[in-house]
């Protein structure tokens, strides 16, 4: 199975690898997946006072598609409001990266990671979690 050019691009030049200070109230962290399943994604957002995502970082243990999905997610998250970020759907990721059916779970994981990060940020700031993770 060959990877799409976009997957290869994100894998070769991953955007926004790194770690934000999870102790800060402005930072939300989502850690999803499991080592025994072969993929773990950690996605972090830093939210400004205006509710807009200033920064996003990821680290991923997984295949090329999982790495590309999380890299793409951080790219999309930056500059988005929390509300708009909640609207990111895994199928958007599938489409953008041309993921084959067997790799759709990677996009689901990325969507879960986004929602988990947002919920973590909201909980930290005394807000109710928005939506159950799939």
């Amino acid at each position: 199975m060959a990877y799409s050019e976009k997957v290869i691009d994100h894998y070769t030049n991953p955007r926004n690898i790194g770690t934000l200070d999870k102790g800060k109230n402005t930072v939300g962290t989502g850690l999803v997946g499991a080592p025994e399943c072969g993929d773990v994604m950690r996605l972090q957002i830093e939210v400004g006072e205006d509710g807009v995502i200033q920064d996003a970082k990821f680290k991923t243990f997984g295949c090329g598609s999982a790495i590309a999905s999380s890299s793409l997610a951080t790219e999309w998250l930056k500059g988005k409001s929390i509300d708009d970020a909640m609207k990111i759907d895994n199928m958007d990721i599938v489409e953008e990266l041309a993921l084959p059916p067997v790799k759709i779970h990677c996009s689901v994981l990325a969507e879960d990671a986004i929602k988990a990060a947002i919920n973590d940020y909201r909980t930290k700031n005394g807000l109710p979690a928005l939506e159950e993770i799939k």
């Binding site: 199975m1 990877y3 290869i8 894998y11 399943c37 072969g38 993929d39 243990f61 997984g62 295949c63 090329g64 999982a66 790495i67 067997v102 779970h105």
Partner: peptide
């Protein structure tokens, strides 16, 4: 340890090797 086999194979794309990772299999079973 701490690196996933299929991701690793992609990083050595000029080497034809195989992995115990079954990320491509529907079952996700290694």
């Amino acid at each position: 340890k701490y690196v996933e086999g299929e991701g690793l194979m992609m990083g050595v794309k000029d080497l034809a090797v195989s992995s115990g990772s079954a990320c491509t299999s529907a079952s996700l079973e290694p």
